[in-house]
Design a protein around this nucleic acid. Structure first.
Lengths: 367, 367
DNA sequence: TTGAAAGCGCTAACAC
DNA sequence: GTGTTAGCGCTTTCAA
């Protein structure tokens, strides 16, 4: 393995000079820089990550915690993960992949070991057990672990187990927990997204809108994005004077068939659907087709889903996109800012955009 | 931050004793061990990853390179990534996520910096440009970078740039490149998978089978799994005396419609389909339904796809599963074995399993 | 069964 | 603009 010392010797300079050429933290004469860079190239030198981390207390690694369970729409997670990784690289960081498996222990382990400088958490739950560890990373309040190791076994000097991780550990959440104080969060503004859907349909003359939602479990357990969407849908419905019927729905054909039958039974005058459930989209379209209801002539469909799903569906869907890439990119940039001492705790809700495609049109004349 | 020295002081032992308690590399009296463990707990000690890596030349990190482009079926990648991560954790390793973006440079960077002890590469191409760097990791042939830094600029001492990465860097590929010498690979035996599909359908009396394949681009560029499947399909078709028509197909409804029309035009007697393209599965089923062809009464469909796709389709599909979890788990276990000095270069092809579900049945009586 | 001490390769004062 | 040097926190001989 080539070391910095070898590079220094090869270039005929001191070790610190090589280090400074690498970090750019002090000015170097053009000539010296050239020689050092040449030596680095010739020797195929790569700085040792461990040594660097030890000396600088910075690992240049960001941890990304993804949920273990996979009932969220997987491609979105993947897209976020890829966006996080490429954005991180662009800022000189690598990405450590963690699954939710270890729970809060993973946070302690990674923070405590200095494996990563900061972390991004996906799919945070409303009252996530990892949150207490993460609060208050923004304004470095030095209320961290106070106990020193100047006492011996037997005295009561416990530390850390239930307090926050060090202040040098920053986190950004993708999603919105119930209580965001002391946290930095990024998410789509699902409330606005819901409102946007109703607004669009109301403007087209629809007066009876049905909402096909996520699986029931999602409404209880998750980040609350489903509830927020519902909020937006409902308040806009009130404002626009349209009727709204909401039904959760497990994905797949069978479940969608049951849900659709119930909806049409209860509200035969339904002329528009808002779908927030990737695995219900295609089944819904198939069932409508099968029942001889043309989209968008007889019924309109608007989805809240990733762009790709909307475009690849059997009818190109009018939709509000879930901006996975932006969320990943934004999360990294915010985290890097915090690590650099810039940046602060804040909640950023990305503005939704509705793209009109082939699945929505004017409400049919009243029966 | 709590250090090992602090733990030692707190427990009233030396630093090395704490270290050995942690590593288990020498015997410790029950009493000492208890005291040390107690101190570790009380102080909330976590070993510093950088220091450990520096001192031991082991990072306990595995790098996972996933392809940047996302035209492979994403959920499979995600499933592999999760399996890799949880398996790695079970062996005491963390996972560093890399995208293909950086190409071969990522391999050099990670190997050179000691960021990871080994790597797993997904979606390797037939003639991947990263392969030359990876060959021969199995039997530690010390033909690595020979040049020492005892020469100065001007002499001809280049190193590394086009030679293999260090012998301490092991790799396992998920997928099968054209030339596997000196490489360790894990993949599904797609050849056997293809054969299995034809065998199943032939046994049911089908004599005219159509194969809906991956997008044309996949056949040129990729790991060759598509060609291997085709090999298996064809040779078994020959053996079973059935006719086989293969057509690549872009995913989606429009493309599938065109492809299906062509197939039925060319082979009107087709009674069975083998599909190896996740995004063509549902379109095919929908189109068949639409044309009044019942599955499995009129036509049988067998898919090569992840279990989940087969089960969630509008007709539960007879399928050969793509064992994403096993592949991820196996890759890690093999890599860990290599890192421990056990293990060797070898190609492991997982045996395919065909699960009969609702989409395949006896061939209809000849027209 | 335990301790003392020499590094691992790098960064960042501190000197000049 | 450059060199010297003292650690960073851990592992691992070597000694006892």
């Amino acid at each position: 393995m080539v070391t910095l010392a070898e590079v220094a010797q090869h270039a005929g300079v001191s070790a610190s000079t090589v280090s400074y050429v690498l970090s750019g933290k002090r000015s170097i004469s053009a000539n010296t820089r050239r020689r050092v860079e040449e030596s680095i190239r010739r020797l195929g030198y790569h700085p040792n990550a461990g040594a660097r981390a030890l000396a600088s207390s910075r690992s240049n690694v960001i941890a990304l915690m993804i949920p273990l369970r996979t009932d969220m729409y997987v491609p979105v997670m993947m897209e976020i993960a890829i966006a996080v990784t490429t954005t991180a690289r662009a800022h000189g960081y690598d990405v450590l992949l963690l699954t939710g498996e270890e729970g809060p222990d993973a946070v302690r382990r990674v923070a405590g070991s200095g494996l990563a400088d900061g972390m991004i958490l996906m799919d945070v739950e409303l009252d996530d057990e990892r949150l207490p560890l993460l609060r208050g990373g923004g304004a470095p309040a030095h209320g961290g672990p106070p106990a020193r190791a100047d006492s011996r076994v037997g005295e009561d000097s416990r530390v850390g187990e239930d307090s926050r991780v060090g202040d040098d550990q920053s986190a950004v959440l993708i999603g919105l927990p119930a209580d965001t104080t002391g946290l930095t969060c990024v998410d789509l503004d699902f409330r606005a997204a819901g409102a946007l859907c109703v607004e669009h349909l109301a403007a087209l003359g629809h007066r009876d809108i049905a909402v096909v939602g996520e699986a029931p479990a999602v409404y209880e357990r998750h980040t609350g994005f489903a509830e927020r969407t519902l909020d937006g849908l409902r308040s806009q419905a009130r404002e626009s004077g349209v009727r709204l019927l909401h039904r959760p729905c497990e994905g797949g054909y069978a479940a969608m068939a049951v849900t659709l039958a119930r909806i049409l039974d209860e509200r035969p005058g339904t002329t528009a659907f808002v779908v927030q459930n990737e695995s219900a989209v295609e089944p819904l379209l198939a069932l409508l087709r099968q029942q001889g209801r043309a989209v968008p002539e007889d019924v309109s469909v608007v989805a809240i889903c990733p762009e790709q799903v909307a475009v690849q569906a059997s009818v190109r869907l009018t939709s509000v996109a879930i901006p996975a890439q932006e969320m990943g990119r934004y999360a990294v940039e915010h985290l890097v800012a915090k690590l650099d001492g810039r940046g602060d705790d804040e909640v950023v809700l990305l503005a939704p955009e509705l793209t009109v495609r082939a699945s929505s049109g004017p409400a049919p004349a009243r029966a």
